[in-house]
């Protein structure tokens, strides 16, 4: 098998994220396009992992498959103990809500809600915290990402960097063990980006597992481990 098994050094039993023989292809007018080819991946709890690669290398597909946003064609995905490749769309949603926080490149905050409500929404949908505690927790999370003074504003009234902080706070709302971010700093300037990265580092220290997809080398430098994707395969990995 030519594919490098990234992070295979760690035993599967310990891993919080364990992917085996994962394939994913898309239909295009020009024919099928193989986005992921035989991906193996193990990530331990508390790791901060960066995944790098050019456009079209399969980074986003990997994130989508891993978060259950998209479904792999074949392979095994055991994440935080759940075999998500066997789940249907609704089961994946329910599982994701409690196990995995997603941070999108374009923040994707709900425009009609203020920042607190954007965060309490996640708790509401997942039924994770009692209704009377939700607001308090949302404020704490906003405090944690340093944006509590804007708590009552709608997303359109704050800058992109601030929106991304809120998106991170939202991803943490249901207190999931894993945080996955797709190009979280792609639309931000250097200074703002550093602020976001600090938050990720702190979270990793506090025990969260962080997976960031990026094409920015400086982010990779902050991560504990960096994996490189090309044409749907890992080309080399640095194990912690």
């Amino acid at each position: 098998m030519e594919a490098t098994e990234a992070g295979q050094a760690k035993s599967r039993e310990e891993a919080i994220i364990a992917l085996r023989e994962v394939y994913k292809s898309y239909h295009t007018p020009a024919g099928p396009f193989l986005a992921l080819r035989n991906i193996h991946l193990s990530i331990l709890p508390g790791e901060f992992v960066a995944i790098m690669g050019k456009s079209g290398a399969g980074k986003s597909t990997l994130v989508n498959v891993l978060t259950g946003i998209d479904q792999a064609d074949s392979g095994e995905l055991i994440i935080n103990g759940s075999p998500i490749h066997t789940f249907n769309e609704d089961q994946r949603s329910r599982w994701r809500g409690r196990n995995l926080g997603v941070v999108f490149q374009f923040f994707q905050l709900l425009p009609s809600l203020n920042l607190i409500e954007n965060i309490t929404m996640a708790m509401d949908l997942t039924n994770t915290f009692p209704a009377h505690e939700q607001k308090q927790r949302a404020l704490q999370l906003l405090e944690q990402v340093g944006i509590v003074e804007h708590a009552l504003k709608p997303p359109s009234k704050i800058s992109g960097g601030q929106q991304q902080r809120v998106a991170i706070a939202r991803a943490l709302a249901a207190d999931p063990p894993i945080l996955v971010a797709d190009e979280p700093t792609g639309n931000l300037d250097t200074k703002t980006r550093d602020g976001i990265l600090d938050i990720f580092s702190r979270l990793a220290e506090s025990g969260k597992t962080i997976l960031v997809v990026t094409h920015d080398k400086e982010i990779a430098a902050r991560a504990g481990r960096t994996l490189y994707l090309k044409d749907g395969k890992f080309i080399g990995g640095t194990a912690t």
Partner: peptide
């Protein structure tokens, strides 16, 4: 549609 997608990404199930 996109908001629906985000809500599902946050753990919302279809019935909700």
């Amino acid at each position: 549609i996109r908001q629906i997608g985000v809500l599902r990404a946050m753990g919302g199930v279809r019935s909700q």
